[in-house]
Amino acid sequence: MNLHAIRAIYLFEMARTWRTLMESIASPILTTALYFVVFGAAIGSRMGEIDGIEYAAFIIPGLLMLSLLGESISNAAFGIYFPKFSGTIYEVLSAPVSYIEVVIGYVGAAATKSLILGVLILLTARLFVDYQIEHPVWMVSFLILTAVTFSLFGFIIGLWADDFQKLQIIPMMVITPLTFLGGAFYSISMLPPFWQTVTLFNPVVYLISGFRWSFYGVSDVNVGISLVMILVFMALCLATVWWIFKTGYRLKN
């Protein structure tokens, strides 16, 4: 293991995080705060409870996931896309590092940033809503697993993208709709039966459901299934990254 290299990449990426602190942390927090004001305080007070949970509290896990997925993907995607774009990737490619070390460095830093963001959003939410966390260990586990998995996914997008538009298109066109339709703002049991079935093909449903369970002990789908789904997605991402580095796809040609 080239630990010095992992450390170098990780610290380099984290330095970028601190440099861009305002854009990368302040804006998602502001956005989330706006959701709380609108959906929690303004509209939420007119909504009934869902599964026995006050609406403002009910949407916290989903909102957190919404930011976490978006930020993990865009951090990691940009982190690897920029060196590719500017040409500085030559240094990483010519260094005595394995792809696993490169991934740990870049994805680790992106996930760290997402986790910091997640914690800050939770603290912000506290200002608006009183929530409880029933299974804190599971909550943290889901948080870490999601941050890492979607940072990996973002890393793949960054490797695949060959212009700035492609960098934006997946988070915009795929992740945001999947999250909105994945039960961030409602319980899927509120949907007509047909759409309940369709929704089960949305992987984000499992993330939000599992995460909400760790807060309030209630879930749309079984927690075990949620966990398995995240792990399956992570395995798929790892396999894709492995393939990319093995073949040099969009990197070494």
Partner: peptide, 29 residues
């Protein structure tokens, strides 16, 4: 091996010392 590439594709926001530390670390030193 050390490589000085042809193009000036060089990440621009960090300091000279920081980029040196990055390069050295990357090569396992």
């Amino acid at each position: 091996i050390g490589l000085v590439p042809q193009e000036l594709g060089i990440a621009t926001f960090e300091s000279v010392l920081a980029t040196m530390a990055f390069s050295r670390g990357l090569f396992g030193k």
